[in-house]
Amino acid sequence: MSSSMHPRSERPATRQPVLLLAEYSTTSHVVHAAEKVRDAGYSHWDTHTPFPIHGMDSAMGLKDSRIGWIVLVMGVLGLATGLSMYLYMNEFNYPIVVGGKPPGALPAAVPVYFELTVLFSAFGAVFGMLHLNRLPRHNHPIFESDRFRAASDDKFFVSIEACDPKFNLESTRNLLESTHPSAVELIEEKEAHSCSH
């Protein structure tokens, strides 16, 4: 992806711009800024907020989360695991007749199917979420900014990555300046940075 980092020629070879960061102090400012960045047609950009803001997904033009499909697949897998455990262990490998029920009487182990469905679905939800978010990732260039520490406290941020095809140091900075930020900061790194999403 480094080939898309076109402002390279404008900067000294040692420091590459990685992203532009704009800081806002209210939720309404950051939502309006997000709408502007979305309308300007950027794709590799994000907002960073201490809590999820209502309406931000549509302000950013994000599609619905795909995590439900992961959970569905895992849930079916859990159900199948429960059924096959029961059938293998109590019907085929060592049949046990208890309470006058035939060895493979399916209703007799419904709690097991149910619990395993829930367990696998929950694994799907948690690990699916981490996978879709590409977490854990402890080395993001955005952490270079000291200002960004407030993103988990009381400030709101918009970040536009330099690998975005529309990224231009001047025009992108102007776009962010026009959204009434309380600060705009350029983050540079020694090495070229590949886009995260």
């Binding site: 999820p52 994000l62 989360s65 995590i67 929950a122 939800a125 990732r137 955005i142 960004f148 941020f157």
Partner: peptide, 25 residues
């Protein structure tokens, strides 16, 4: 914190996962 950076692209999946976990629990 797993490198959490409050990204809204993350919150989107996070909130849905949280809702699903609540629904499962």
């Amino acid at each position: 914190a797993l490198g959490w950076r409050g990204s809204n692209r993350h919150w989107k999946n996070y909130e849905r996962a949280y809702l699903i976990l609540a629904g499962l629990s």
